[in-house]
């Protein structure tokens, strides 16, 4: 197959658009798609301070690289949760640090141990994800707010968003549906705007970009990950995509068009919110979920203020 633009050998067949692209034209296509998402969804401008949450995986490192090339001057943030099994946190951190160094990009490293004195594996429970995810979101948001960043970017791609949308729809999670968006405004001074600049790229396109750019990424999932449910939805959608190219994109963008249907749900949820007595974060209780956790009452996590748009891992 040849590139539709310049006739060189194609590296990808974009079946949804009925065209192949060569390496150079695909590179331009990726930069255009991300710039388009940033503009279309009014994510941020070149005058704002941009923070990118980086895990070491292909999507977040690719995103960091793209934003830097587009001139957004992004700072990276790696949150070290202290996952020592299989050297997970250490290895991810090394990958991120090496990338930052090679590109001359600014990197902030936060560590749960600085806040809690130890790593997440020591919570004394077999299932880490709910607490780990809560603490990671808290530290990420807090770093963004206190660092004066206007926006926090994550590497969620179209496959991630479409899979979450399918899951939220199958379970009619109207609260999550109301909040699922490529950009979430900060609705409280202790929160930052959140943006997902890769939403117009499939996971396959994102992976190809990272490979073609020669970015070394962390290929192994967290040893505690039980990401099986999302994976099932992704694979189902890819089966439909193969038979009917463009399905993922239509499913997601038509949902965004019709999102008004769920308006009101998100607003209602915020009624009765207070501020955490210890850190000021919005919460329903006296202390927010993270402060309850570090103060040692993590047997009772409390109710976390829903901010994201999906069922927690």
């Amino acid at each position: 197959m040849k590139c539709k633009v310049c006739k060189r050998p194609a590296v990808i067949n974009l079946r949804a658009q009925n065209r192949g692209l060569c390496e150079g034209c695909f590179d331009r296509y990726v930069l255009d798609r991300v710039e388009k998402a940033i503009k279309r969804f009014k994510m941020f401008t070149r005058k704002e301070k941009v923070l990118v949450a980086v895990s070491g995986g292909k999507d977040s490192l690719g995103l960091w690289d793209i934003l830097a090339r587009l001139g957004y001057n992004p700072t990276g943030l790696f949150v070290d949760m202290g996952i020592h099994r299989h050297g997970h946190s250490e290895r991810s951190r090394k990958v991120v640090e090496a990338f930052a160094r090679s590109r001359g990009l600014e990197l902030i490293v936060e560590s749960l141990a600085d806040w809690w004195g130890k790593g997440i594996e020591e919570i004394g429970r077999r299932v880490l994800c709910p607490t780990c995810g809560m603490a990671k979101r808290y530290l990420t948001n807090r770093t963004a707010v206190e660092g004066g960043f206007h926006v926090l970017c994550t590497g969620h791609n179209l496959d991630d968003e479409a899979a979450v949308l399918l899951s939220n729809t199958l379970n009619w999670q109207v609260g999550y549906l109301a909040r699922q968006s490529p950009v979430l405004e900060a609705w409280h001074p202790r929160l930052t705007r959140k943006a997902k600049p890769l939403v117009l790229l499939t996971e396959r396109e994102s992976a190809l970009y990272t490979i073609l750019r020669g970015i070394e990424y962390m290929d192994e999932p967290c040893p505690y990950s039980r990401g099986a449910t999302t994976l099932v939805y992704k694979r189902l959608l890819n089966q439909v995509e193969w038979r009917s190219p463009g399905t993922k994109q239509r499913f997601y963008t038509l949902f965004l068009k019709n999102k008004g249907l769920f308006e009101g749900v998100a607003r209602e949820e915020r009624e009765g919110l207070k501020e955490c007595e210890r850190c000021g974060q919005p919460t329903w209780e006296g202390l927010c979920a993270f402060c309850r956790f570090v103060e040692g009452s993590h047997g009772d996590r409390g109710r976390e203020v829903p901010e994201g748009d999906q069922v927690r891992p």
Partner: peptide
């Protein structure tokens, strides 16, 4: 070492790598 589209042909002497792109984590 070259990324190809699915219409490419694998010749008998080729080294082929198939990369799974969905992240599991």
């Amino acid at each position: 070492g070259k990324v190809v589209t699915e219409d490419a042909v694998m010749e008998p002497q080729d080294q082929v790598k198939i990369l799974w792109v969905l992240s599991r984590g």
